[in-house]
C-alpha cells in the first residue's frame, strides 16, 4: 500500500510539479524503491524528450547534457547505485539492519 502510494505520488509529480521537485522526491525514495529512479527517468523522457530538437543545432557537437535523454541516463545510474548500496548493506555483518524496504 505504501509503495503504491509513493509510486503514484512520484508519477503525479512528474505531470504537475517542477522537475527539480520530482528529482528530489525520487532521490529521497530511491533507497526504498530502487527501480523508481529508472522508471521516473523513462517516463520523463517519454513525455518531454524531443530528439528532433537536436537537429536544429547544425554542425555543433552535443554541447549540453540536455541534448540527450538525461533523465533516463541519470535514473539508470541512480538505480544502479541504489542496488549496489542495498546489496552491500544486505551482505554486511550487521544483517538485521541491512534489509531495507522489506
Amino acid at each position: 500500500m505504501t509503495r503504491a502510494f509513493l509510486t503514484a505520488l512520484v508519477l503525479l509529480s512528474l505531470l504537475f510539479f517542477p522537475w527539480q521537485f520530482t528529482a528530489l522526491l525520487v532521490a529521497g525514495l530511491s533507497l526504498y524503491l530502487p527501480l523508481l529512479p529508472l522508471s521516473a527517468g523513462i517516463l520523463f523522457d517519454a513525455l518531454y524528450y524531443a530528439p528532433s530538437a537536436n537537429a536544429l543545432v547544425l554542425g555543433a557537437p552535443q554541447s549540453s547534457v540536455f541534448g540527450w535523454p538525461f533523465a533516463t541516463l541519470f535514473g539508470a545510474i541512480l538505480t544502479a547505485c541504489v542496488f549496489i548500496v542495498r546489496n552491500r548493506l544486505n551482505t554486511s555483518p550487521v544483517r538485521d539492519f541491512g534489509h531495507i524496504g522489506e
Binding site: 526504498y32 524503491l33 522508471s39 521516473a40 524496504g101
Partner: peptide, 8 residues
C-alpha cells in the same frame, strides 16, 4: 519484486 517495479 524490487520496489518500483510497478512504476517501471
Amino acid at each position: 519484486l524490487p520496489g518500483g517495479t510497478g512504476a517501471l
